[in-house]
């Protein structure tokens, strides 16, 4: 059982994977000799005004500083239309379909959202969906398909919660049964056969 909850840090694989998620970026300046980044263009240079999907780790730095090279736009799933869907009923949404790292990516994306709507919707979505998550984790025997609709952050919480609940249920149901040999030992073919009659 992991005692720590997830926090992004330099060595966190999940954080690295989350920053690989792409978001649309518009180039503000011409970039010579990088035309091959844009498969649809034939020229050798990347023209200002082209929109490309760049991974977050790249976009974050290209758009920062005093002379930004690109302007980052909000990815589709954090735009108004999707925000409305999430507001209507977050529980009904298949977050996994929207993005493997819905929350983590959102926490990166929110710096490009001047009005702060993205961070608000992330928090609201998490809060509303938590009940569902908790119920899923608390129900033993739920089929593995239930976690298909969770994003990776929720999935991690689900796994931890589910494991803890399984332990509790084993504790509750196991009623001091006598210690037995493990199934492996019993089924082990090479075990020496004890002749009962000899002993008697």
């Amino acid at each position: 059982m992991s005692l720590q909850s997830y926090t992004p840090n330099y060595f966190s694989i999940d954080d690295i994977l989350a920053s690989q998620e792409r978001c649309p970026c518009k180039f503000i300046v011409d970039i010579p000799k990088l035309g091959r980044l844009n498969p649809s263009a034939e020229s050798n240079d990347l023209k200002a005004g082209t929109t490309l999907e760049l991974p977050m780790w790249l976009a974050e730095h290209l758009s920062a500083g005093r002379h930004p090279i690109i302007a980052v736009e909000l990815p589709r799933i954090y735009k108004e239309a999707y925000r409305e869907i999430l507001k209507a009923d977050a529980c009904a949404v298949d977050l996994h379909k929207l993005g493997l790292y819905f929350y983590e990516h959102g926490l990166y994306v929110k710096q490009f959202d001047a009005r702060g709507d993205v961070s608000k919707i992330l928090l609201e979505t998490f809060q509303v969906r938590f009940r569902q998550l908790m119920d899923l984790a608390n129900n033993i025997g739920s089929d593995p398909a239930v976690q298909d609709r969770l994003d990776s952050l929720e999935r991690k919480l689900f796994k931890e919660g589910h494991a803890a609940r399984t332990r509790l249920n084993t504790w509750l149901t196991d009623s001091g049964t006598p210690i037995e040999a493990a199934a492996m030992v019993i089924n082990h073919k090479k075990r020496k056969r004890v002749d009962v009659e000899d002993i008697i």
């Binding site: 909850s5 997830y6 926090t7 928090l123």
Partner: peptide, 23 residues
């Protein structure tokens, strides 16, 4: 445990993200 404390940690992260402008 550990579901609640961990979930609260995440809520805290998202709340914190809301108040700070640029991470």
């Amino acid at each position: 445990r550990p579901l609640l404390p961990h979930a609260l940690d995440q809520v805290y992260r998202m709340k914190k993200a809301q108040s700070t402008r640029l991470p």
